[in-house]
Design a protein around this nucleic acid. Structure first.
Lengths: 192, 192
DNA sequence: TTTCTTGTTCTGACTGGTCAGTTCAAAAAA
DNA sequence: TTTTTTGAACTGACCAGTCAGAACAAGAAA
């Protein structure tokens, strides 16, 4: 079966080029498969893209969830969530950029809708972690959990991207610590 | 002179389609100008794109700077900076997405380098505001100012994007307040 | 065993279309 | 006169998607 080979190649090619610049010819070549096989296995480019993005979201959620099973203090849960997302972002910067940001333009309307749904699911996944923290330990500020989740993703994405262009200036541990601090405590030492 | 008309049209078309899907024919049509005129005024697509992005960065920095001239408490400076960036992001979501995110793939190497330089300048601009706050009022946590600037941009971008898909759920004031809180104080009420 | 049949998977040349960039003669400012 | 603009035609590259048929495995028939 070539399906798996195609998906792996598609991950590579979409990651390197983004959706529009990725060509089906290149994906076929990379998968060592004829172009027709792509269309035998997937209805078209946008469907293939959807499959790839879906796997990305599922992967990050599965990884994170597996590590939060046992009951943990909320601080530790947040730290682990950050760590898993950093892993994904640093492992495959381009891929995660695709997964988290290229869900916008020029993709068929129906596939676009499914992609947005996947994104909402992931935001909900993070929001739930935050929400649980709020209830169980009363440690969190009473902010909107969805917005909090979204700002967390934004921070992670943005900081990782910067880090990958300035690796000489920081260590991975610096990064982890910074993100944790800025997400949980913010910039100010005190505000009153 | 058609240059200004072309740039305005290019902003529109790039914003609506992203770099790759934007066509020079469409930009010419939108600017009510012959295609030849595009190539008379700009060497090519990527140079035109660079001009557009450059204006975007300059615009947001000029606007923000103009409003921070008088000496202000750092809280107020941060709030105003957030407000100006929200303005830009909400006014023209797609344009700012282009400016802040589409600086990655498939653009000629030399132009890409200039674009990255513009991005660094903008990060430096924000980092300086944060750095000043740290020195003058000793109110800020001692985090890396560049990373802090980057995480601020990430949060803003990500939150704005979410807001634009869920406008019914929040007001503009909610948003402003949320971003300010999460950037300055983080999620936790206390961490010791 | 050997030959025929069937369904699945795969192939790659081909089609129709898009687009950046070029060219140029002629017209319109300046 | 010089500079700028026009507009249309053209080139060459690229690309999504198609399709007639190849390849092959496995079962049925001879």
């Amino acid at each position: 079966m070539s399906k798996e080979k195609i998906i792996q190649a598609a991950i590579e090619v979409f990651s390197e080029n983004g959706y529009h610049r990725a060509s089906m010819d290149e994906i076929a070549a990379r998968a060592q498969v004829a172009k027709g096989t792509l269309y035998y296995n997937f209805p078209g480019k946008s469907q293939l893209f959807k499959t790839v993005v879906k796997q990305g979201f599922e992967d990050i959620m599965r990884r994170t969830e597996a590590d939060l099973n046992s009951p943990l203090p909320i601080k530790e849960m947040i730290m682990r969530t950050i760590r898993h997302h950093l892993d994904l972002f640093l492992e495959s910067r381009h891929f995660s950029h695709i997964v988290f940001n290229e869900i916008s333009n020029g993709i068929e309307q129906d596939v676009l809708e499914e992609l947005k749904e996947l994104k909402r699911t992931h935001i909900g996944f993070l929001a739930k972690i935050i929400e649980d923290g709020k209830c169980e330990e009363n440690l969190f500020r009473d902010v909107d959990a969805n917005l909090a989740a979204v700002s967390m993703i934004g921070t992670l994405e943005s900081v990782c991207n910067y880090y990958l262009n300035h690796q000489e200036a920081y260590t991975r541990e610096d990064l982890e610590q910074f993100v944790f601090t800025v997400i949980t405590q913010g910039l100010f030492i005190s505000v009153e």
